[in-house]
Each structure stands twice: as C-alpha cells, then as structure tokens.
C-alpha cells in the first residue's frame, strides 16, 4: 500500500507531528511505502534545523531527518506556508535576500501541487493536525 501523510501542526505544541511519525514508522515496518510527507500550516516548523530541545526530550526535527535518510522519505515543506513562518532553504534565502537558511536535512521546500500530486499518486492520504 502506498501512503502519503500530511502534517499540519508544528512540533512540541501539538501531538500531530508525533502521531504522524509513529504512524509512518508502523507503516514502514509493515512493509508499506510512504510516497510523501507534506508539511503545511504550522507543520512547516518541523523542518527547521535550528530547533534545540532539552536533552531529555525527543528531537522531533532530527527524528524526521533520520527517518528520511533511513527510508529515503520525501519530506516536503510548503513554500507559501514556509515563507510566512520563516522556514528557508538556500535558494529561498538567496531569492529573498535573507542572511541565512534553516531547512533541516532531508526536507525540501516546494509548492502545494506536491500535496495534490500525493493525493493523486497514493492509495491513501492521512492528515495529522489540530
């Protein structure tokens, strides 16, 4: 089965990102494919590498990056939502004359069309949010 997952809330404030992560891990270990994970609304905040939680807490951002590298996941941050919330990759930083970027490893910034495509190409689309 080919799944895509949408994450609509940022890390730590809401459980959505944790739930999505646990669901995806369970789906992968059952042998399913994850076509794409799409981050929207405040969910784009899952994609900043500047996150620094206390050591005794889970590192939600690194956890996504590690899962992406282990399973070759496509983690896509919506560009429009990211621009509003200050999530920037090197290209966006240059284009908008920012003094730096903050996109975490394994994430890429792209358009909303990636979400629609995920809906079209996947067998199931699940949404985690508020």
């Amino acid at each position: 089965m080919k799944f895509s997952v949408m994450v609509n809330e940022g890390p730590y404030t809401h459980q959505a990102s944790d739930s999505a992560y646990q669901f995806i891990r369970a789906a992968l270990s059952a042998g399913h494919e994850i076509f794409r994970v799409f981050f929207y609304h405040d969910g784009v905040n899952n994609g900043t590498r500047l996150t620094t939680p206390p050591q005794d807490d889970r590192h939600i951002v690194n956890r996504w990056s590690e899962l992406a590298s282990e399973h070759d996941l496509d983690l896509v941050v919506c560009v429009a939502a990211a621009q509003r919330r200050g999530i920037v990759d090197p290209d966006e930083a240059k284009r908008n004359s920012k003094d730096g970027d903050n996109i975490a490893p394994g994430f890429r910034i792209s358009g909303l069309g990636q979400l629609i495509e995920a809906g079209i190409e996947s067998d199931r689309l699940l949404v985690f949010g508020d």
Partner: peptide, 18 residues
C-alpha cells in the same frame, strides 16, 4: 499503531476530522 495502519489499509478512504 500497527492496528491503525491496518485500519488505514482495509478502509478504502480516510476522513480525519481535524
């Protein structure tokens, strides 16, 4: 979570009431 994945497979569509 394994049961959650199974439910997402056996049902042909999913409505997440957010």
């Amino acid at each position: 979570y394994d049961g959650f994945v199974d439910l997402a497979c056996t049902n042909d569509k999913i409505q997440n009431w957010l």
